[in-house]
Design a protein around this nucleic acid. Structure first.
Lengths: 232, 232
DNA sequence: CGTCGAATTGACCGCGATCAAGGAAGGTGG
DNA sequence: CCACCTTCCTTGATCGCGGTCAATTCGACG
């Protein structure tokens, strides 16, 4: 594996505080693979053979039931996914597919579990990571159950802006239909929601988002750190 | 604190594998308190001062936004709640209130965190617990986004039956309006959903549930372990 | 260009929310 | 012991958000 990747992975919260020897051990069994867009990486129900790390590109996590499917999240570099299944040796609850050409590092789950058992620094990092994932999932539940689709979209726009240091204009980095699914609505309804947001000072054309009246938008969206702050 | 409580807590997955000295240390700062029904134990946004353990009674976890509120989960003896906030020293994402007269053990968060830092057995137990919470939350998201309210109710009935060794008749241990909120619907809609379930072989009168035709119910509910199995 | 998938738009429908009223059950006090 | 009250549950009528179906339009790419 390229040493540039090794360094990047080493700097992830998850791997930063583990001992050198253990990091090297877990990386010995790792391999990198490059995938075209729309490749299924894992399927829900499968057993967890690898912990995945996204180095480049992006990966969609989604779930399926009786033919329908819904987007649960998007994973961007550099971060891991399906850590919980790896730790619990349990079947994946979500499927994953690449959205664009992506480079993925795969760490054998068994290696991760055995290092986890003997490196307390790593174990603590895993705890922090899982606590974050759990809290993110609770926030997702809250926005789904407490807000209308229009409110969810408005808060999404504010979140994306905040993630870019509060700029008022930016590009959506996700297909609208994926965003619709993530926010729990249909693609058609997303189109209408985008129009319906204009009176509150947001204009979206193609993938270009412009916030023209932030006070109005915030008055409508009523964001709260207890739902919308990705940290905390 | 009564030693009976100590023994029960000691047998929780979370505390089972920590060293004796550490268990005693974290229990020294603990205290037990008995609450009447409908007492607010914590409020979302507050900082996490205590890890709570429900010994008797039941506790509702719920979240609020702009006046509305929704039930996220019900905690029954013997288990803990808001572990993630404790570990991350982050504000609570959910509020908690007693549903009935309840006995709660409260462990100072700071003690939990410091033991967590030095007892790797405990740290691993925390990881397993958090991974479970996270996976449960994902399952909740999946049922919300992929199913209609009637399907959610049907699967809830099957889950409760399974939790009682598959009996065909049992009592709801939660108010219908709470159940409605948990499943993401209104109390009125719950009443109608209960009626609508009768053709599939389920009859609910008061808090008495009777499954009269399990094959029909299962054919309609289409349960899957990837959403409905509380373990895994 | 031509093609294919995404996005948009319109028309319609239905699930579930809301509003309003009535009934059942359980607890309390006279 | 019973009248009363509170609380939850139920039922009916109506509304609207969001889903579905269908038909264009847009846009990226070969």
């Amino acid at each position: 594996m390229k040493s540039a990747y090794l360094a990047e992975i080493r700097h992830l919260d998850l791997f930063r505080s583990m001992r050198d020897e253990n990091f090297e051990a877990v990386m010995r069994g790792a391999y990198v693979q490059s995938f075209p867009p729309l490749v299924d990486l894992i399927r829900e129900g499968d057993s967890s053979d690898f912990l995945h790390v996204v180095m480049d590109g992006s990966v969609e996590l989604f779930a399926t039931w009786t033919g329908k499917d819904t987007t649960i999240g998007i994973v961007r570099p550099v971060s891991t996914f399906i850590l919980a299944a790896t730790i619990r040796s349990a079947p994946y609850l979500m499927s994953a597919r690449t959205l664009e050409r992506s480079r993925i590092v795969m760490l054998p789950s068994e290696d991760v579990r055995s290092i986890f058992d003997e490196d307390s620094g790593f174990a603590r990092a895993v705890v922090r990571e899982l606590a974050s994932c759990y809290r993110a999932s609770i926030k997702h539940t809250k926005t789904l159950k407490l807000r209308t689709s229009l409110e969810r979209l408005a808060n999404y726009v504010l979140q994306e802006s905040a993630a870019r240091n509060g700029v008022d204009a930016f590009l959506l980095d996700i297909e609208k239909r994926k965003l619709a699914s993530l926010l729990g609505m249909t693609a058609e309804n997303m189109s209408r929601a985008i129009k319906a947001l204009a009176p509150y000072g947001v204009h979206i054309e193609g993938n270009r988002v412009v916030i023209e009246n932030r006070p109005d938008l915030e008055a409508f969206a009523k964001p709260t750190p207890l739902i919308d702050d990705p940290a905390s």
